[in-house]
Design a protein around this nucleic acid. Structure first.
Lengths: 354, 354
DNA sequence: CTAGTTTACTAATGCGCTTTACTAATCCGC
DNA sequence: GCGGATTAGTAAAGCGCATTAGTAAACTAG
């Protein structure tokens, strides 16, 4: 069990180096215009190394008036965030930049999106220097208020929702939707079902559904709301939605708004004795690692999640440092990955360039 | 952009309530034997609420001599940790208990397992009150030294590796391996391949491979090292390993040490024109959410990851509070989930009770 | 009615650092 | 050789809380 180890403070480093605590602080923090001679500098550095000195971050944070933590706030974790590699990949990109700047990541799960207290404590408690929020719910008054409150006190970047005044980095799921639904249309499909996720008012599903509809109509295909089903972020709902589609509708293609639902849907199609893509073409969205290994391999839109985390981190650190980010709202492009499930390989499609 | 909001301190609460700062602290922290009258208590509470007071955690941590953060240290994140739902599920269980006790989670990615500095800074910098480490590498001198160093200074719980002196919560992957390999044996298989992950010296793969061998030998099946391939934590390696197995060996069953590799392996089997489970039975390990939705649905061992995180959190908080945990090394059981990929449903197996 | 105890608080110190204001010594130009 | 600028530092205050030691008043017990 932990025993009290002798705590090394900057005062002890000062003593050992024969200088004042101030000098130690100046040297260790490389304060400019502090006029420390090279010789003294070296003595301090040596002393610090010999004593194995690591400054107490709590004291630093208190004295500096700024924490060195950044919060990653995950709202609705169980509904949508904790699926596939989303969190790990975001974290990968994020830590890549935060580590460089000496920030640590505080992960906070907020189950109720409009739970203002979680934010309040984090901010007022001075626990974090900035926050990155995964917020994909509908922009209600509640949320707008929370965002406003937060933004007035601490730099903040959202990963999804766009509030005009709050910086954000967002994956262009809407553009991706256009691309992939057009892909299905080009393959000749006219009965294209859609499995979306709810609530339909939320940022992405609403806009994506609209684009799905637009693309169909542009191709002269009437929008049929019977072909739209609402799932969630798990294979089960995709499976259920497909079952229900198969029971009542005749379709030749499916656009599932995430890969995981596409997996479920394909299972349902198989159970019904139908083949993918011969009977029903299926496309997903996200490009999870397993997408390449489903039966058949899933055609999908690739989301740059590592980049997503990285950009959000960079933007936040800019804000923390008082630098105005070049773009207030960054949009990251998705990329279509054509595999087998859409049936493109069967039809000798001419160069899909989108 | 954030403007300086008037910081509310306990001193202001004190003023408003007409008491001393000490009293505010006593009331807010519910200090025992502080003899605060009910009336004063109420005045303080009211003032705090009216001013929207949230104590500065940095100052609290400094004054109390204890941080209220717990580190979740993820070693080798890209190699194995950032697969499927592992991190999210661990986080779910962990935050469940940490939130109750007022601790926050600091996530730290350590790419090099024997990178002592990461631990040192976290500990010496007094950033955390305790650490949970996902350490699944071979117990080298390096690691043993790091663990020793850490444990001498701060409570620590490992999620995988077992150092006799360091508390741990671990999923019984070895026991699970026994169960599921026995399952394949009972189904009549004699040529059972194994796709493990490396490095083979690490905690789990070594022990699991040993059990795989033991189970075979107990059934009178000679261990054939040609049937063992080393993959990793991604479908690609499972796919590659299976390709290579199919090229040279005749097998009727496969035990993949994780579901993701099993997915890859199944893809390879299909490509070779063989059927799962008729030609080759496949079982995985982990029970990821998609396991139920592969073709065919994957038979696997379920890992209680939420429970894993929860137990680790409970154990750590006990240690932090100076309570000796009931068990120093907890072992969590896995559960076999029989689906289609093992072919059990084809053979009318008598009640699989394990 | 007084000494001792309990009740209900408060003053003041310290956690370990950063930072501002200050000082002593040296340098430099004329 | 003297005033101002520069160099190389330091002393001390303060960040916002927890906590220890202490105090004044009220309440007992004898």
């Amino acid at each position: 069990m932990p025993r009290k180890s002798p705590r090394i403070t900057s005062k002890q480093v000062a003593e050992r180096a024969g200088v004042s605590q101030t000098t130690v602080s100046f040297v260790l923090n490389q304060v400019e215009n502090s006029n420390i001679s090279e010789e003294t500098r070296k003595r301090v550095l040596d002393a610090a190394r010999e004593l194995d000195f690591v400054p107490d971050v709590r004291a630093q944070a208190l004295a500096r008036g700024r924490s060195n933590n950044i919060a990653l706030i995950l709202t609705n974790p169980h509904r949508q965030v904790f699926v596939d590699e989303y969190v790990p990949t975001i974290l990968t990109g994020l830590t890549e930049v935060t580590q460089q700047h000496g920030f640590r990541i505080l992960v906070e799960l907020v189950s109720n999106t409009s739970n203002a207290d979680a934010y309040r404590n984090l901010i007022q408690g001075k626990e974090v220097a900035g926050m990155i929020v995964n917020l994909n719910a509908k922009m209600t008054d509640d949320i707008e208020q929370i965002l406003g409150y937060a933004r007035d006190r601490v730099p903040i970047v959202t990963l999804d929702a766009v509030h005009p005044d709050v910086c954000s980095v967002m994956v262009d799921k809407v553009g991706g939707t256009r691309t992939i639904v057009q892909h299905l249309v080009k393959l000749g499909h006219r009965r294209i079902a859609c499995i979306t996720y709810g609530p339909l008012e939320d940022v992405h599903p609403a806009a994506r559904l609209r684009v799905y509809r637009t693309v169909l109509e542009e191709a002269g295909i009437a929008y049929d709301e019977n072909l739209v089903r609402v799932g969630a972020f798990d294979p089960e709902t995709g499976y259920g939605a497909m079952k229900s589609l198969l029971a009542t509708e005749h379709i030749t293609a499916l656009y599932a708004m995430n890969d995981v639902m596409a997996f479920g849907a394909m299972a349902a199609i198989r159970e019904a004795g139908l083949r993918v893509p011969e009977d029903i073409a299926v496309v997903g969205f996200d490009d999870i690692r397993l997408a390449r290994f489903s039966t058949p391999a899933l055609t999908t839109m690739h989301e740059p999640n590592v980049e997503h985390g990285r950009r959000a981190g960079e933007m936040l650190i800019d804000l923390i440092n008082g630098v105005t980010p070049r773009e207030k709202h960054a949009l990251l492009a998705t990329r279509m990955i054509i595999r087998q499930s859409c049936g493109a390989h069967l039809r000798r499609v001419d160069g899909e360039e989108m």
